[in-house]
Amino acid sequence: MSEADPTTIGSTAPGHYGSASTALFLREATIATAWNVHGDAGSASLRAEVQRIARLVLPMAANTTSKGEGVTALWLGPQSWLLVAADAAALGDFAGARDAVNAAGGALFDVSASRIAYAVDGAPAAAIMAAGCPLDFHPRHFGAGQCRQSLYGRVPALFYRHREPPDCTMLVARSFAHDVWRSLCTAAAPCGYTVRAAAPFG
């Protein structure tokens, strides 16, 4: 990997930044499709319809996620879930899926362009997250397969751990991407970090 200019903190070009050489890695996790499911969690027909479309069981417990073939469902609230796929083919046609979910009494929104995801990995990842977020990132409180909505700085963010800690992925509104990336890099700069090339979400 090429050696990037350590003074350009906030650059998205792959390379190592900062003077120290801690194993801390930042990258974008690319999202092709993101659909927001709204509806009554108690409705068996809605759950069955989503299971047919996304080939996964919606997570009913708060702050949890579930995985299907190339699709991840994240719990956003008692009546709201986010389906995320790194490959557009994993979820298929939106209009047909929306009509089917509507018929089952729910609502489906295509929010594919709304969020950008950043993955942070390496031993100091929890400290980098905690620099801007009030959540407890200790593995005892926030383990693999869990998600939480909170803030990073003043930006609403969705945090997700799809693997064992310290790995953590953060989804924020795309309009805040530059701001949040700079905040992450500024928090990571004292211990040094490596920007990796973007890779698929999950």
């Binding site: 708060a62 959540l135 909505q149």
Partner: peptide, 11 residues
């Protein structure tokens, strides 16, 4: 009641 104990800044 849904998410558990959270910091006031989220509310």
């Amino acid at each position: 009641p849904w998410c558990g104990s959270r910091n006031q800044v989220e509310f």
